[in-house]
Simulated assay, not measured.
Amino acid sequence: MIERADQMVLNYVSRAADAAHGVLRPDQRLDFARRLRARIEAERRGSQDARDVAKVLTRFGDPVALVEREARRLAATGPAATGPAATGRRGVGSVVRGRPRDLAALVVLALAALLVPVGLPAVAIFQVPVLVWAAGAAAVLFSDTWTAGDKLAGAGAPLFGYTVGGVLVGGFQAAEAGPAAFVVRFFEVSGVMFMIGTALGVAWLAYRLLDVS
């Protein structure tokens, strides 16, 4: 399994290097392949699971497109400060066009946080923001874009903020007032902590979704 995962990376980088032949100068081609391999290894984060590596390579996209983008970058003559901004816009545009379901999952998670202060009536025993969060979390978990760790961090951050954040903040502020005061304070702050957790989770998933040079 380890050899298979490593071979997948080597094959991908080799395809990119082959595509760069005749497009980039030899020194540029070597530097491009080296940086690409380093970026893949950073995204891979030591995983030896072939499925995780395949997801990482999928996020990088077509090697030919990477070579074309590198050629455009090298050919650019504008101010250096405009380069990163242009690259970022291309990355966001690519995500919007290619990952609509993943973006929809992020929107649903964000909507769950926005509904917290609205105060909608509960459905059965469940608060509406919790139900919306569950739908967004399910969409994230069933996606084949993020790794298992990314999914756990992004989808679990709102719930973590609600429970752990609510307990810590509420308990700290009502430590000397007794259990009843703690319960009251927990429900006062847990919604805010849920919103903070959601913002952090969505930001992390969005960051991982982008192919940042």
Rank of each mutant, 00 (worst) to 15 (best):
V192P: 00
Q7T: 13
S14V: 02
P179V: 00
P129R: 09
A75H: 05
L106F: 02
L168H: 06
S143K: 03
D49P: 00
L111V: 14
T58W: 11
R15N: 13
R185I: 00
L120Q: 03
S94V: 01
R101P: 00
W146C: 00
V64T: 15
L141V: 12
M1P: 12
R90K: 14
V169Y: 01
R101M: 15
L10V: 05
V164L: 09
L30T: 15
Y162S: 04
T163D: 07
N11V: 13
R99K: 13
L152K: 05
P179S: 00
V64F: 14
A16H: 05
G93R: 10
A148H: 09
T145L: 14
R69D: 14
L114P: 10
F32D: 04
L205K: 11
A180H: 08
V169C: 00
V132I: 11
A17G: 11
E188W: 03
R73C: 05
S14R: 12
A19E: 02
V96A: 14
R72Q: 15
P26K: 03
R39H: 14
A75T: 06
G119N: 07
V130I: 11
G91R: 15
P121K: 08
L152M: 08
L159Q: 02
T147I: 01
P100V: 05
A138Q: 05
A203H: 06
A113V: 03
R97Y: 10
T163E: 09
P129E: 07
A5W: 07
P129D: 06
V9D: 07
R29G: 08
D31K: 06
T82S: 15
G156F: 04
V64H: 15
L57G: 00
F160V: 04
S213H: 09
D144G: 15
L111A: 15
D62C: 09
H21D: 14
D18I: 01
P117L: 07
V202I: 03
R37Y: 10
D18N: 12
A139N: 07
D150Y: 09
L57H: 03
A134C: 04
A174T: 05
V183P: 00
V67R: 03
V108H: 07
M1Q: 14
E41C: 00
F126L: 15
T58R: 14
D27C: 02
V107N: 07
V23T: 11
A20M: 02
V189R: 09
A17K: 15
A38G: 08
A124H: 12
V67Y: 07
P26I: 02
G149M: 03
R4M: 08
V192M: 12
K55C: 02
V108A: 06
G156M: 04
Q28Y: 06
R4L: 09
D31C: 05
G178T: 02
T145H: 12
A153R: 13
G149H: 04
A135C: 13
V118E: 06
L103W: 10
V184M: 01
E176Y: 06
V184Q: 12
